[in-house]
Computed example of a mutant assay.
Amino acid sequence: MLLRPLAVLAALSTSLLLILPLEAREVNHAMGVTEVPDNPQRIVMLTNEGTEALLYLGVVPVGAVQSWDGNPWYDHIATALADTVPLGTELAVNLEILATLEPDLILGTKVRQEAIYPQLSAIAPTVMTETIGGEWQENLQFYADAIGKSEAGKAAVDGFVARTGTIHDALSDAVNERISLVRFSPNRTRIYYKQTFAGLALQQIGLQRPASQDKDDFAQEVTKERIPEMDGDRIFYFSSDLNGDESAANLNDWLNDPLWLNLEGVKAGKAQRVSEIIWNTAGGIYAAHLMLDELEAIYGLASSR
């Protein structure tokens, strides 16, 4: 175990000085090796999924990047983050405000914050995951290890895996349905494959994907000519409301296209809009369980919570 002297305390009745060491350890991460305190008290989190991970582990960050939707947090975590300072977005972290929080550990991700890693490391020990998204369970364990809560992290991940197994069994023959995932946006419409937040959850449950979507990739932007590739026994689609009327008009345009209306899943009444935040943007363990809640409701299953 590595020791790092952090403070010098005055003796109560003498002028002698006592060096008080704080236990620390080396953490291997996407940007190298960093020595971090064993029991960090002031943690800053720079990913949305990581904020959910910390909260699930019973830790409230002193600062965190704001949610992609919400002011500044997603509704499902807003109460827990009442005292947390927002630090901009994953792609634009406010370093000045971050520094004033005097953190003893910063957690982030290389895919978002590689360029500012030197500045972050100058403020406090900083460790990073390689990327975010479908890897949220591995990342949760990484964050748990970094803050000295490895067993709690394992319990959280094991609990989610166990719940997907329970849902698999409850679905019975319906588990063989081929599930299509589509995101509609004014900027780009994409078919989501298996290496996505929702795609990996469906895979863990054991639900199938149409042949055209049975790919270990993230997603692909498509034009209307490729609407037939969106078909499935069930079609789950999501669309952000952030652009207001523009998003609504775009979604209405796609959903009224003759090719969409001719899909077997649509004609069977099994095309359903689901939450963009829960199925896509939030990306953390609370969102993952809320997604399973939504799936259970759609299939008419008893809650496995």
Rank of each mutant, 00 (worst) to 15 (best):
P258V: 09
A248T: 05
N252A: 15
N28P: 09
G283D: 02
S172K: 15
E90W: 01
W254A: 09
S13M: 03
L18I: 14
D38A: 07
D233Y: 07
S212A: 15
M45L: 13
N39G: 02
E135S: 14
E229P: 00
L18H: 09
K110H: 12
W260S: 04
G63R: 05
V44D: 09
V59P: 13
S247K: 05
E276M: 06
D257H: 15
W279L: 10
E102V: 12
I227T: 01
I19E: 11
D169Q: 14
F238I: 04
P186W: 04
E246S: 09
L259V: 00
D83H: 15
T34R: 08
V33T: 15
V175H: 04
Y56D: 10
N39W: 02
K267I: 12
G206F: 10
G165F: 02
G88A: 04
A201W: 01
W279G: 06
W260Y: 10
T281N: 11
A92M: 11
L207K: 09
Q66K: 14
E52W: 00
Q141K: 14
G32P: 06
L301S: 03
R183W: 00
Q137W: 05
R112T: 08
Y117F: 15
A288Q: 05
L22I: 05
H29A: 12
P72R: 04
T109W: 00
G244R: 09
N243E: 13
A78R: 10
G206E: 02
P210S: 02
T281V: 13
Y286T: 14
W73V: 08
L301H: 09
N262A: 15
A302G: 07
M45R: 07
A302F: 03
V274D: 05
W68I: 05
D173P: 11
G199M: 05
G108Q: 03
G284I: 04
A10S: 11
Q213F: 06
Y299K: 09
R234A: 07
L54M: 11
D241W: 03
G199H: 03
R273A: 11
L81A: 01
G206V: 01
Y56V: 10
L242T: 10
G70I: 00
D145V: 04
L263V: 13
G206Y: 09
E114L: 13
A53R: 01
D231W: 01
Q204L: 07
V222S: 02
R178P: 00
L3S: 04
H29K: 12
A124L: 13
H289A: 08
E225F: 03
A144G: 06
E135G: 00
D69E: 14
A115V: 14
A174L: 14
A144E: 02
